[in-house]
Write a protein that binds this DNA or RNA. Structure first.
Lengths: 385, 385
DNA sequence: TTGTCGGCCATATGCCGACAA
DNA sequence: TTGTCGGCATATGGCCGACAA
């Protein structure tokens, strides 16, 4: 099975990471991971996958053979295709090439800024109000002696397509704005208020990039606090029909899940597409994390803490909670599966950001979590406290 | 395996048939059919499917367990989900409920009209020039004493969504036009000149329906005579990106093909999605047709005739030709497969329509055909002459 | 510092009859 | 009968500073 190229060209990993979010974890080539078919199935776009053989283990140890960083041609979402080879438990040493230093270097090579779009930003006929920090740190400096100070920005999106924006500093009081070109971008990407725009600058070359993140709605706990309902959906029966892809939850074909699980269970190399989205669980998890968790004695009352990024990636906040139930299926096809074995009750959380997380303090977190389930914004790690 | 419901609601079979085209053949529930994995694979949207087991027979006898008439939520194409159970050759009697009479009755219950859109019809800011016959036979009669004669039409599309069009009879000389509402429809359905609109009226209730058929381009012989190139594609790198689905050829996920073929080979019930499109071969074919063809001694020089509908379904035309080669693979995974075993050379064709088929008289038909391959417009049957 | 609003201008949309194929 | 065009009215897009949060 060759990794298919039909989904488009590979994305520069540096840009990919900046657009997907800095806390997204993609296991490096050579590392050991566990593949969770149940988690994969949760990403299917319709129904439950059909497994030809009934004996699909709940988790399968694999080695990462390759990783491709890609972009969804319809939604612009960053996603990764990971090529996995099932391996034995005894094969327990990572063969990762340790290039952490190199990674750090290149990561410092970009600077990025995320803004959640206001209604004014996303309105038809409107421009984009550029926060001061973005204008100063990302965009080229304007010539402020001109009247008005103005320049044309040439920015590439995740596909490498070029977009042009007029960047002007005007108004009383003065502020930075993107005018001409912005509206076309918003319409083309089908952005609505609540979505985010990511502006990225490669510090060495000065090249500019722009990415989008869709507002997380319609999944799990996120659904409860969001006040923006299905504004992207067809509002009247005679609507334009152009935004229908918004209704689909999963991004992965049901049959692709079934096929991957089948091949994994047979010990054959297989490929999975991972869409890192807030509120969706990773189903390919570093083996070290799974193994550390499996040695933990989970019991009701265990207190846990979860670090996660806010939606605009500007800060990291914490969930704190108590495990309220531990469920390991005792029968059925998934007997003994740790997937979503934990359910936590959240309490007494201290946040260092106010806006986005405040409503969540009032709800019971019902997600069952093995390790990385309670995503909100993006979860980075679970710590027992 | 339950037929999934995620693709949308079922379409009224009468409306479905009128929109798909009257010559589209969907095998009835209970009938025996042959499933051709190779033909199915030709409908995959990327690469070649991965077959887990290598022994996939080239054709598998099945019984039709159920048929669902559906509509693609993105392209509005009519397609069918057919649920098939592999059966033995000895199980040779159809269990079809003979409801031909009933079918005939209901088919007479609708009247439809197809028009290929002119540039003026598909232009932005333009209306739709309603042919006289359509206005007379499909739309409600206007009040011609009014000045101008005008009415509002309320028409449902294949999804049941309501569209409103202003139908006016004006101009000098007088003619029927759809004005207000038409442009929104064209933009929403992404119609371009060359595509077709189908207007349907249920004679009993007077209810109106509208469907679309995309111009057949990019496949086989159709590609050679069409002069309209990829006008729907993104023209600039900063384009809107809204028409990208036009680039995809197949409509079926590669993994779905692999899974269906696997299950068919194992004798398990499976489901396939069939998109009846001109230029694409049916991969689920009535058993009687396949068996009749397999008793035929095919040889180079055999003269064949093929009836087919013109694109606007108004008339039936004929291809005539001579078999120029007969190829049965002698080795490889598809040894002995009849799929596309015939290649025909076209000659001396007599058409009873002029416009759409005339260029095809000048080309060599290179398609290899088992039975139903030389689709142009829509092929209905091959006859040895 | 930055989100939203009303004003105002430019452009695009879209209805029309004229005319010709 | 019907496809295409130019004219013209109107709607929408989109840039602007004012003002307030």
């Amino acid at each position: 099975m060759q990794p298919s190229t039909a989904a488009g060209n590979d994305v520069d990993p540096i840009i990919w990471r900046a657009i997907a979010g800095n806390s997204v974890q993609i296991p490096p080539v050579g590392s050991r991971v566990y593949y969770f078919p149940q988690g994969h199935a949760e990403h299917a776009n319709s129904g439950s996958p059909v497994f030809l053989s009934l004996a699909i283990p709940p988790f399968i140890l694999c080695r990462v053979l390759s990783v491709r960083f890609l972009a969804d041609s319809v939604t612009d979402e960053a996603f990764a295709k990971i090529f996995l080879l099932p391996i034995n438990q005894s094969d327990d040493n990572d063969v990762t090439i340790n290039d952490d230093d190199a990674d750090d270097d290149v990561e410092k090579d970009v600077v990025s800024f995320v803004k959640i779009l206001t209604p004014s930003d996303a309105n038809n006929g409107g421009g984009f109000s550029v926060p001061r920090f973005c204008a100063d740190s990302i965009f080229p400096r304007l010539n402020f002696v001109a009247e008005p100070p103005v320049q044309n920005l040439v920015i590439r999106d995740i596909h490498g397509c070029i977009w042009e924006f007029r960047h002007i500093y005007r108004g009383t009081p003065r502020r930075h704005l993107l005018t001409t070109g912005w509206s076309k971008f918003v319409n083309s990407k089908k952005l609505v208020s609540g979505d985010s725009a990511v502006f990225i600058r490669k510090t060495r070359t000065g090249e500019l990039y722009v990415g989008v993140r869709r507002a997380t709605r319609g999944n799990d706990i996120c659904q409860r606090w969001t006040s923006t309902l299905l504004r992207r959906e067809q509002t009247s029966s005679a609507g334009t029909g152009e935004v229908r892809w918004r209704t689909g939850q999963g991004r992965v074909a049901t049959e692709a899940v079934a096929q991957a699980a089948e091949m994994a269970a047979r010990g054959m190399a297989f490929e999975v597409s991972c869409y890192p989205r807030a509120g969706w669980a990773d189903f390919v998890v570093r083996a070290e994390i799974v193994e550390a968790s499996s040695t933990m004695f989970w019991t009701v009352g265990t207190r846990v803490k979860m670090a996660m990024e806010t939606e605009d990636s500007s800060r990291t906040a914490c969930f704190q909670g108590t495990v309220s139930s531990v469920i390991l299926p005792e029968s059925g096809p998934w007997r003994g599966s740790p997937w979503r074995m934990l359910q936590a009750f959240e309490h007494g959380t201290v946040y260092d950001t106010a806006l986005d997380l405040r409503v969540a303090t009032e709800v019971v977190v019902e997600e069952r979590t093995a390790l990385k389930q309670l995503e909100f914004g993006r979860l980075s790690v679970v710590v027992v406290i």
